[in-house]
């Protein structure tokens, strides 16, 4: 059986908010190490990878691996019933038909429990290789969110290029073009989470659909910083660390201009 008790129930709400725009259902994998989820959006362009380690829970018990297929939309609805200070406990059997969610208010004056039906989801599991990234950019998550929002007011696609000097985001739309360059600022006055840091072995650049990046920034409340990892011609990873608990990571396939035969000219 599986049982996990989380003191900051609010965290669970935030995690769900970070994925609900991308997937409608997903398999939460309960294992002795923790609770994880991997899922792709319906067009297989982006992938979500969540890990909530067992150490981050106040109490955690899981004897064997249990896949817990849940409808995300319904789960969000149900979590709306929990107060933001509530303690959340998740429970289910080894082969669950139902998952129980227990919400206890902080002062222990209200207890609610919800039972939610599970579903069988045949999703494809992808092997995400352990990558050494050519470029790693760490920046304040709020700034990244703002930047993606600003970019998408102008265009659909953002070209990200990382050099030693900084990260340049550019986009083109009907009304014109926009470029935003973020420079590393190692100034000692700033707190760690306010700094932008760039580590590269060689310059990298690639294009991505802003629509997806924008939905990734829904994870902003989870972490003060966001980390982008890039390798030439491979998907970008966008990571939000959850303090003492794990992470929410997103992988996004790049946009690559036509590599096709270009259309034969039959003269």
């Amino acid at each position: 059986m599986f049982e996990a008790r989380l003191l900051q129930g609010n965290l669970l709400k935030k995690v769900l908010d970070s994925i609900k725009d991308i997937i409608t259902e997903g398999n939460f994998d309960c294992s002795p190490n923790g609770l994880s989820l991997q899922a792709m959006d319906s067009s297989h362009v982006s992938l979500i990878d969540i890990l909530l380690e067992s150490e981050g829970f106040e109490h955690y018990r899981c004897d064997r691996n249990i896949p817990m297929g849940l409808n995300i939309t319904n789960l969000v609805k149900m979590l709306k019933c929990a107060g933001s200070d509530d303690i959340v406990t998740i429970k289910c059997e080894d082969k669950p038909d139902n998952v129980t969610f227990l919400f206890e208010s902080k002062d222990n004056d209200k207890i609610s429990d919800f039972e939610m039906k599970t579903m069988t989801i045949d999703d494809e599991h992808l092997l995400v290789p352990d990558q050494t990234y050519t470029a790693v950019v760490k920046m304040p998550s709020a700034e990244f969110q703002r930047l993606c929002r600003d970019m998408s007011a102008i265009g659909d696609t953002v070209h990200i290029s990382v050099t030693k000097e900084g990260v340049r985001f550019s986009t083109t739309g009907d009304m014109g073009t926009a470029n935003i360059t973020v420079r590393p600022n190692p100034s000692a006055d700033l707190k760690d989470e306010e700094r932008t840091e760039v580590q590269i072995t060689e310059p990298v650049s690639a294009s991505f659909a802003l629509r997806y990046l924008n939905s990734f920034t829904k994870a902003t409340p989870l972490s003060p910083t966001v980390t982008l990892g890039m390798v030439p011609n491979l998907p970008v990873v966008v990571e939000y660390k959850i303090a003492d608990m794990g992470h929410v990571r997103y992988y996004l396939a790049p946009k690559i201009e036509d590599e096709e035969n270009g259309g034969a000219i039959e003269a």
Partner: peptide
């Protein structure tokens, strides 16, 4: 689908099996 330049993740990552007990 209308956007041919958008790649899919399947082209980059191999398929794996979910961890089963």
């Amino acid at each position: 689908e209308a956007d041919k330049s958008q790649r899919r993740l399947d082209q980059f990552f191999g398929k794996g099996a979910r961890v089963k007990d």
